[in-house]
Design a protein around this nucleic acid. Structure first.
Lengths: 253, 253
DNA sequence: CGCTCGATTGACCCGAATCAAAAATTGTGG
DNA sequence: CCACAATTTTTGATTCGGGTCAATCGAGCG
């Protein structure tokens, strides 16, 4: 199965060096906001570093904030840890999606960001970005929208947690992932879940056992076919129905 | 009981005309961000209109977005309505708090904002604000922080919904309101809940009956004293404990 | 003063958590 | 490459928090 999770080899090195202009993800990452000239300028401030290996951190809570990040390949999760030490997964990030804006308010990150598999990111220093804003008002608008969209999607999750059953939550997550794959031009019907059942349960406010049971239930209903982390959607409209038409976000921060 | 919810009379007219400089809420509304000169400039773009009566809307979902609002007096709630028609309360807004930033991403509001009691607001046109940003970088930073803080507080709510019991949720809400009163220099121990039990339940993902039961339970435990909408906190530390040390946000959007 | 709507209380039920154990994967070292 | 250990996932049995349904009880108000 072809994947855009580049292993750490020559291919990935090439991927690191690619510019925004040539990046297949740029329509997701920077929708409409900038013209060709501006793109070059934006490109010039972006840092591309070596890929993260599975389990490595992109940043940690309390790290000083100075950049936001765009996922180039692989998957990351973010999670917060409360005083009493319990973790709350706050998001999953797929290629083309942005993370790290949690740090703006405190000037420190409040979440941990960890690679769920080998992953490459683009780093966008925030101070440089702010300077660009002055020159490129559309970019600034775009960034506001990004923050605002993040709020939107949090509120979708709130709705999910506040009103939906276990089955609806899981169906919504699967729909979301399917949808995000589509955006990248991939099939909406087959994908690999990089995150563990535990992560899913934590994110959706469910016990691991429940997650597992719902997967098998959806499979028995002929809606999906699960094999470990591999998921095949057999009946997309039924899945959509089961999620009660919930579109669980195009992830951002 | 003295209150800053101005009725529609001469007093409220005075309140409308007051400038940011003289507003007792300005330390909450605009923390640190601006100096005296800048304050005058900011003041000049703010529109103050007649107070809303109970049940009146400040804005509605799908309204074009052009302003954000600061609450001067009274309480508002925001809520979203999903395709299938169900409502989700997304926040309660007390004096000094900002709302309306939900509209930035779509250029339309996605929430309804309704007065829970007579309420006065300051309107801040966003296009004018953006122009000020260019002149006042600190104000811009401040605004980013506002958005980011909104995300933070949504994530606290997510944690609450995802991991906490009914009792912990309600205790957290009461702690939050108490805390927000304190910020305005009021007593943390006594306040009036402007919202209905229904609103509380909807916000916290609980049935009305559960809200009611938890209130009586907390009362039986000697932690609070409830009389309809009036709440007296008898044991703040016990309440804090019951909320599992959850600080449910300083509201913003 | 009666009516309506919100709040409370009780009885019952159900979905999902918890506890327990087996099964499947993944990783590790010889 | 295989055997063993550790982790993750699945399945089953049981429990329990909170939802639902129904009835009663106010409080505001026309």
């Amino acid at each position: 199965m072809p994947t855009d999770n580049q292993p750490v080899n020559r291919l990935s090195i090439r991927a690191i060096d690619i510019s925004c202009k040539d990046c297949s993800l740029n329509p997701i990452c920077l929708p409409v906001a900038v013209n060709a000239v501006q793109l070059v300028e934006l490109d010039s401030i972006i840092k591309r570093s070596r890929p993260l290996r599975k389990e490595e951190y992109l940043f940690r809570a309390s790290d000083p904030f100075h950049s936001i990040f765009a996922v180039r390949s692989g998957t990351l999760k973010t999670y917060a840890v409360s005083e009493n030490g319990e973790e709350q997964v706050t998001g999953f990030y797929l290629p083309g999606e942005l993370l790290g804006i949690d740090g703006i308010s405190m000037n420190r990150h409040t979440n941990f960001a960890k690679a769920l598999e080998t992953a490459a990111v683009c780093e966008i220093p925030f101070d440089k970005l702010e300077i660009l804003f002055a020159k490129m008002p559309t970019l600034q608008r775009h960034f506001f929208q990004l923050l605002s969209r993040e709020i939107q999607s949090d509120q979708l999750l709130i709705r999910l947690l506040s009103k939906k059953s276990a089955e609806e939550r899981i169906a919504a997550l699967l729909m979301s992932i399917s949808h995000r794959h589509t955006r990248r031009g991939l099939s909406p019907l087959g994908f690999r879940l990089a995150m563990s059942r535990n992560d899913i349960g934590n994110y959706l406010g469910l016990a691991v056992e429940t997650v597992s049971r719902v997967f098998t239930r959806l499979q028995k209903q002929g809606i999906i076919l699960v094999d470990g982390k591999e998921v095949e959607v057999l009946d997309l409209s039924a899945l959509s129905l089961a999620s009660d038409a919930y579109e669980l976000r195009a992830q951002t921060a």
